[in-house]
Amino acid sequence: MRKIFILEDKCSGCLNCVVACTLAHEESQFYSVASQKEPGRISVEAVYGRPIPLVCHHCEEPACVNACMSGAMQKDLETGAVSNEGNLQKCVGCWMCIMACPFGVITPKKKGSQKVAVKCDLCKDRKSPACVEACPNGAIVFMNEDDFAKHKKKMAALLV
C-alpha cells in the first residue's frame, strides 16, 4: 500500500500541510472558518525548536482498531488504510483510540451535535493526500514502503 512518509529534515514548519488537511476535510473557502470545526489530521510539533510533522502510520496491527469498542475504527484490508470514516455514526467519543495510539495522531472533532475521533484517511477521495500536495519542500511523500526505502537509500548515499 502507499502511505504517507515524512522527511523531517526538509520540514520548514510552515504548517501548509495542516491548512491543506483541514480544508480537505471541512468544506469552506477559508481556513479561519474550516479550522473552527476541523482540527487537521496532520500536526507539526516543535521539538527543541525543530518542527516535526506527525501523521498516522496506518499500522499493520493498529492499536486504535484494537481499542475501538464500537467497531468504528477499522483497517481496510484492501487499501491498508486505518480509518473510522464511513463509520462515524458508530463512534461514541470514548477516546480509547486516542489513548491507545502510540503516535498521538488521533484528534477529537465536533461533527454536528456528536463528538467523534478523527484521523488521517489518506484522502481517499483524492488522487493523493492534500498534505503531500501542499508541502513546498517535499518533506511529506506518498509512497509504498519499498519505494520509500529506495528513496531513503538514495538520499543517504548522496550524503556520503
Partner: peptide
Amino acid sequence: DQQPQCKF
C-alpha cells in the same frame, strides 16, 4: 502556542 514557527 506559536511553535513551530514557519522558517520561510
